[in-house]
Design a protein around this nucleic acid. Sequence first.
DNA 1: CCATCTTTGTGCACGCGTTCACAAAGACAT
DNA 2: ATGTCTTTGTGAACGCGTGCACAAAGATGG
Lengths: 254, 254
Amino acid sequence: MATGRTHRPATRSRGIPEATVARLPLYLRALTALSERSVPTVSSEELAAAAGVNSAKLRKDFSYLGSYGTRGVGYDVEYLVYQISRELGLTQDWPVVIVGIGNLGAALANYGGFASRGFRVAALIDADPTMAGKPVAGIPVQHTDELESIIEDNGVSIGVIATPAGAAQQVCDRLVAAGITSILNFAPTVLSVPDGVDVRKVDLSIELQILAFHEQRKAGEEAAAEGAVPAAAASRKQSSHEGPDGDVPAVMPA
Amino acid sequence: MATGRTHRPATRSRGIPEATVARLPLYLRALTALSERSVPTVSSEELAAAAGVNSAKLRKDFSYLGSYGTRGVGYDVEYLVYQISRELGLTQDWPVVIVGIGNLGAALANYGGFASRGFRVAALIDADPTMAGKPVAGIPVQHTDELESIIEDNGVSIGVIATPAGAAQQVCDRLVAAGITSILNFAPTVLSVPDGVDVRKVDLSIELQILAFHEQRKAGEEAAAEGAVPAAAASRKQSSHEGPDGDVPAVMPA
DNA sequence: CCATCTTTGTGCACGCGTTCACAAAGACAT
DNA sequence: ATGTCTTTGTGAACGCGTGCACAAAGATGG
């Protein structure tokens, strides 16, 4: 609905909260699974369970997109898949370049989750001249020298940085200069980019460190309440097959 | 003190907000870099810039840990490195198992960022019998059958799932049953776990989809304000960007 | 057409996180 | 000591995100 103020929140994109945008892919994945099983409609409750969120949150999220549900029935799966795909921009082809073809870069190149969602690996780029021409995931690696021309020729606007930390900013600068406006950064560095360029970062070791924090805390509490709650973990064992759907067929192409 | 209440917010761990915990690794990384350059002290302003955050936020974050700064001077780098490391639990050794040694699993096994922060890859586990014994990153892969004994013998409490989506829940269940209480999940699935088990997920394709959303939006705005166009991006740019609520193929259910 | 039942869409309240802005605290010079 | 200057630590305000709870909307059956 109308966000009362014409205040231009800047963090929101066309009225869709950032937190909602981050969940749309989650919904899409769950819906795709339902679609493959030819499920025609789904209620907010069911879909929320499949996506691992609260049903009220899901409904509110969808309300930002529009009124796509039918009261008393639920949401039409196919229709919703289309709407979310369109909203996320997945109905178009997104060529992507991956820079830095080490272990991680190679893994990304082979990752099936990209191609299945409209992302096409347009090129693999590495600074090592001995890698040039070597095929990874069926795509020949090209040298960094070609970076600008590759991006220009293919109209690439999304770049993935999987280089060592030391090279990341330099690569980033070249990507931006060449016209890239969205970057997914796997290098453990803070990238500085001009306004108008989006950066999302994935840091594997940060995630582990956060887990370690909680793990340490759990160990501490356990020690503090020694013997008080012995097998607490065993009590609420997982009972769910997440609703009435049993195991879901692998959504992801291997 | 701020939260004087013994209220037990449950979302907060010992009074440290989750958002702060998530930033501590970021600060730690920046501090480590300073430490390596033998910088003795750093101001909140400088450190914040290095970590890519607001300085007020950084000071507030640190205030949750205690008063470790000196007014008029800044923070002692070494001391802060130690305090944050201790807070995150990185002063102890965390054995980790990685399950699913495909491209991604192998990349993780080779990832240097783990070992340098107190995380030790205790074992690599894969369901494929032909992989058994094959060394990856210098560590022989072991078969899934050994999963329980490996975890028990090594006192592992953190597990990394890098299997295909279809196997993830099954693996997760076994990990939890074997005593794992923290899971880092790379498989594109919602894992259900009992209370007391932490799960963090990293989904590569979700990150790209979020980027695509913003990219599409930028393209749309750009088209709306036609005139100034980043040179390279405009060349073979995708053309299909109808208005926000463009035409819809009206996929009505039968 | 009316009653009932299901499920959506959302107003509202609450809590977390962020940011501002400033007093307090210490360093440093005189 | 005293004053000035720098930088921290935090009170307070604000905005975003979440979840409750319910009215509205439509399906379904008599």
